[in-house]
Design a binder for these strands. Structure first.
Ligand SMILES: [Zn+2]
Ligand SMILES: [Zn+2]
Ligand SMILES: [Zn+2]
Ligand SMILES: [Zn+2]
Lengths: 171, 171
DNA sequence: TTCATGATGTTATATTATATCATTTCAGAA
DNA sequence: TTCTGAAATGATATAATATAACATCATGAA
């Protein structure tokens, strides 16, 4: 049953422009099935289809872009349909919303779904190529927790989105 | 001409609920005048008035809330009026937009306008009392720069907004 | 004055998101 | 199996946020 292990999401899409993205998609969908099953949540066909559309690439996608893509596959679909699916996927931590772009992207960290729903995610976003990469960094986590702790502040949600130029897009 | 020195913005509004906020306002407006003068930018009556409305408190304000406030003082005003003023103020770093709230708040760091327009700002936002406080933290800056640097990423913009409960609102 | 530039006014519209209620689906109880 | 309540989806309308496009006005330099 090494279903997940057979495929994996690319860790740093900035550095892997020509990777086998179908493997990312399979990994994300299989992981989502497993996560929802474990939690007793329902990854319905609609939700799965929306997640698959989000995973078309490593670039954030707007809700109405997703709506158009979904309509290509199902005919007329109204906005609440896509927003409800996205809300579910975000609640489960399978998708993240990038507040600075008002757009959505698949979660890049399969491991983070073991217990926590809706985990913190920190992004680097390239303004040139449009890729957005979810980063894990202990120092950043520490700095945020330290800052909040010293202020006596209890963290509920983190929006950390760093925009600029990725290494490949400089010069 | 110690005009600015006579007044100052409160550093940590979380801990100063009953402070003399008129001093914050004066400080912000005087500082903005000075900053714009130094840069050869025009803080017109309209822009100044919008900045004053933004500074009604230490809570983020939506563009349409500001529009309503402005209308109370000037009669009918259309959305582009407020958005253009906010764009100017954000460009000058006098106001920050909180992407996670789609709202605007006055810049809490008078010192950061010496050279840089549109400087990075990191916020703690209390979901209970609504206060948003701009934080300065070397470790956080270091962590962000380190993370970006190791990825070969050049930072253009930072959105760092930590939501939760401030010390006063716990329990 | 004349002209160029930037700021504001005005109208229309784009984009993102949600409220509400009807209908369908589905898991579990009987 | 059928029944039933809760969750999910469908469908319609509308709210909330933001910008495009063009007209007019103010400001300051030549
Ligand atoms: Zn991929
Ligand atoms: Zn790039
Ligand atoms: Zn104050
Ligand atoms: Zn608070």
């Amino acid at each position: 049953m090494a279903k997940n292990a057979d495929y994996q999401r690319i860790e740093n899409p900035f550095a892997a422009p020509g990777h086998d993205h179908s493997s990312c998609i399979v990994s994300a969908l299989d992981g989502a099935e497993a996560t929802c099953a474990r939690r007793g949540e329902r990854l319905t066909p609609l939700r799965r289809q929306v997640l698959e559309l989000v995973w078309r690439g490593h670039r954030p996608v707007g809700a109405y872009d997703l709506l158009a893509l979904l309509q290509d596959e199902r005919g007329r679909v109204a906005p609440p349909t896509i927003y409800r699916a996205l809300e579910f996927l975000c609640d489960q931590g399978l998708v993240h919303r990038l507040d600075s772009l008002q757009a959505f992207i698949g979660c890049g960290h399969p491991g983070s779904h073991d217990e926590e729903h809706h985990h913190a995610a920190h992004f680097l976003i390239c303004q040139e190529c449009g890729l957005a990469v979810e980063m894990r960094d202990g120092q950043l986590d520490g700095a945020i927790n330290g800052l909040a702790g010293r202020a006596g502040f209890t963290i509920a949600d983190e929006t950390v989105e760093i925009s600029g130029l990725c290494a490949e897009c400089q010069g």
